[in-house]
Nucleic acid binder design. Sequence first.
DNA 1: CTAAAACCTCAACATTAGTTGAGGTAAAGC
DNA 2: GCTTTACCTCAACTAATGTTGAGGTTTTAG
Lengths: 154, 154
Amino acid sequence: MAEAIWSVGKVAKRCGIKVSTLHFYEQQGLIHSWRNAGNQRRYKPEVLRRISVIKAAQKVGVSLEEIKRAFESLPNNRTPTVEDWQQLSKNWQQILDGRIAYLQKLRNNLAGCIGCGCLSMTSCPLYNPNDQLAEIGSGPVLLDQAEQQAGVER
Amino acid sequence: MAEAIWSVGKVAKRCGIKVSTLHFYEQQGLIHSWRNAGNQRRYKPEVLRRISVIKAAQKVGVSLEEIKRAFESLPNNRTPTVEDWQQLSKNWQQILDGRIAYLQKLRNNLAGCIGCGCLSMTSCPLYNPNDQLAEIGSGPVLLDQAEQQAGVER
DNA sequence: CTAAAACCTCAACATTAGTTGAGGTAAAGC
DNA sequence: GCTTTACCTCAACTAATGTTGAGGTTTTAG
């Protein structure tokens, strides 16, 4: 201990990622390092925290670009404090809450939509783009009223 | 109505996706069509349901490859029945339940991990790869015990 | 002091999920 | 019947997220 400076290999091993990924993240501006006399990367322990946040965010489907923007709220002139991370954490929880609510809605509608017998898209919240269900990742989901015109099929 | 046969343009418009995406999905084996006398694609209304399932799945972070495997449980010799879709829906709900549980765990640990003051990864469920939190998408998240060796931090 | 392990850069490649465009055919509207 | 719109194929391109490898330097262990 007292050894608060990390090499790229150590960080990679500790985080379960590849050295090349650290290079990549640095290139993308997600993490920072300085160089020693022999041009090798050196990291503050803070980087471990950043990487774990990146990993957690990715599991929730957040892009590196968005993570980068979130990190921009952290100070770059000094090591982030507990308060800095807490603020970031608070923002994250909001995202997570939304995400959870979305999934729950999707889950509860699933039996009634995908597996339903109505074969209609008119009122289905899964198919209906006006439903807030669709308001997470992308644009329009699917338009309404359709499959009941079926039955004839081929 | 009675017109239960769809052209690629109609399907695309109804689903809010591009024609090229339909080509792509067909090429990937996610949807099927037959051709009319003039070599144009024709679809059963079933395709709308498939596409909405694809779109819903993607929002949950499921890859096309996994969706394809899920679709393999559907009959390819006949149009899927309500029961077929219900079965698929049931499997989906399990995935969703796991995903929701994961996010909830992540959410509840967020303040205590990212934003905590301990600066230690020894017992942090977010950093700890043995924690089931990590069991969703990928391999190891982050290994333990680290940042408390910090404090010096140059 | 030397050999092995770890690093460095830079370019190319990989994968997923599509999109775009060129060059040509089919169907629909008037 | 002509013109516009929709379709067709095939190849190339995009963007995000990394990974691999070549060729060379630094650090570390014995």
